[in-house]
Design a protein around this nucleic acid. Sequence first.
DNA 1: CTGAAAGCGCTTACAG
DNA 2: CTGAAAGCGCTTACAG
Lengths: 345, 345
Amino acid sequence: MTIKGKPTSLDIAHLAGVSQPTVSRALRGSPSVNRETRERILAIARELNYKVDKNASNLRRQQSGTLALLLFEDPTSDQSHINPFFLPMLGSITRACARHGQDLLISFQQLSDDWHADYDDSHKADGLILLGYGDYLAYQGKLRTLVEQGTQFVRWGAVLPDQPGISIGCDNAGGGALIGEHLAGLGHRRIAFLGDASSRYPEFLDRYRGCDAALARHGLAMDPALQADAESAEDSGYAAAQTLLARGLPFDAVFAASDLIAIGALRAFAEHGLRIPDDIALAGFDDIPGARMTTPALTTVVQDTLTAGELLVDTLMRLITGEPAESRRLPTALVVRDSTGARPL
Amino acid sequence: MTIKGKPTSLDIAHLAGVSQPTVSRALRGSPSVNRETRERILAIARELNYKVDKNASNLRRQQSGTLALLLFEDPTSDQSHINPFFLPMLGSITRACARHGQDLLISFQQLSDDWHADYDDSHKADGLILLGYGDYLAYQGKLRTLVEQGTQFVRWGAVLPDQPGISIGCDNAGGGALIGEHLAGLGHRRIAFLGDASSRYPEFLDRYRGCDAALARHGLAMDPALQADAESAEDSGYAAAQTLLARGLPFDAVFAASDLIAIGALRAFAEHGLRIPDDIALAGFDDIPGARMTTPALTTVVQDTLTAGELLVDTLMRLITGEPAESRRLPTALVVRDSTGARPL
DNA sequence: CTGAAAGCGCTTACAG
DNA sequence: CTGAAAGCGCTTACAG
């Protein structure tokens, strides 16, 4: 018997001398199929290299077996730039999906797009993973829409009390405290902050506050006059450092809200003849791959992106299957390198 | 009329007072639908936030409307590492897919997996994009299987004459020549090569040969005794540099087959007290984001990854729609930084 | 220009 | 343990 095109379960049924539904049951491991029958069917399926047609299966079961990953690009950066911080996360997300037998659709979005009403409605995905640094207020409304629509989603970002949906994030305040403790311990007093420390950027805000809290334990405090807005991009960090320098206020250390910002600031300081860490100590956040390669290498805070990716997928699957799920904060750790002058160069 | 769950085309048909097939035609912009009717239907669809069910549509049309991106991970590196070189390409691929109205499934694979028989057979994707540095011989057989199965695919990598399927790659020989010309022009004579320069790694081999050809124009040649195997990973580059140094042969410049290899080599040289570029000039290939951040910053060859991503998708779509398509080599350019000492530090 | 009919390849009650 | 039947939501000839 020759089969034109890809084999279907009906082809296998004919070859095995059973009905098509029996093939379906055998393939899905239903216990109500006779062992011999099942084995015969499986053997034939293997030989024909049969694969269940996902479209038919999904249509019938009214689910998609796929998750969608929406990566929000920084609208300011040129389109070739994806925050390298998300790279290892991407890896662990795809692996976690594979473990759950889910396919992963990936899509890059602008915060302004109407991504909130596509994947779910068209049955392309059972749930959404939202990834990206960005202006929180700009998309909070869309998150609310997702909740109203009953769309299942998890988001990487700051874990806030009043927030729509479930978020997985790192302990930003704790990470900020690590930096504050480190800098204060090195004897620095006037610590500048590069990054938007407002409720628009809650992750940065938490890092700022955490740092401030740590300083308080040393009788110090962050000075709002030493804060300059920046979003997580090199150019933005460069500009923020320029802004800070232009103010002419003294400072002896800088906490950049992300490594990308720190790298931009490094360039600005170099252009002004400022030596890091001799003149100014500089710390970042994220521990992106490039953080070890800068000169001097960046002191920073590492987040457990591998666990984060897995948790994101696991949590979304729980949501989809109706199991209880909750937001989570993951621990952070300090990575001391040369840019804070804590170890001999 | 209240609709339970997501609206279907039948819901819209009822509301519009037409048959369900007419709704389908109107939605797909069929010219044979009366303008008024179409507009009425579209208005209702918009209001209900109706989206065509992909599973049903794909099942009926016997296609998937999605492309699958298979990213091959370096089996030696720990699982958190994706070659950063592919990051901008990933971005341009997803954007190109969106332009073509295709969804993008992403999956990380080991070369050893049997990815060659899954996406296509289960109708999950209409075509495959294969991305990754790796041992070519290890998967050439699988490429052949894909061709035999009639699976549509494009691959990023060396463009070779006798190769199964279609490849998009950069002009590796041309890029290698740029490095050879640059190093010879700076007066270097004994140029080592870090990278597997065999037919297992045809991209590296082309870079090696291109460099050799450029040297020939200066009365020089690559010396096989100064070549050490490495695959594209930092650790592998570190090890290769150690191997090279252990041979005790003199050399004044090093061409690393990729930036990752160069970065590993940088570490090895530093440990041996060798200064770059004073003692040894070092050049890489790829211009990954980290290449500007090393100390000294890496001289390297940049590939047009943005165009590459687009071309990969465009070519695959041509294959799927049965239009003529062919392999292509994209131009490269030299990026001179500090590691070859060509400009004052 | 529109409708009635068929069918894509599955899964899942329902009988037996 | 297995089969006959229905149906998931579309698209596409085929009539009219």
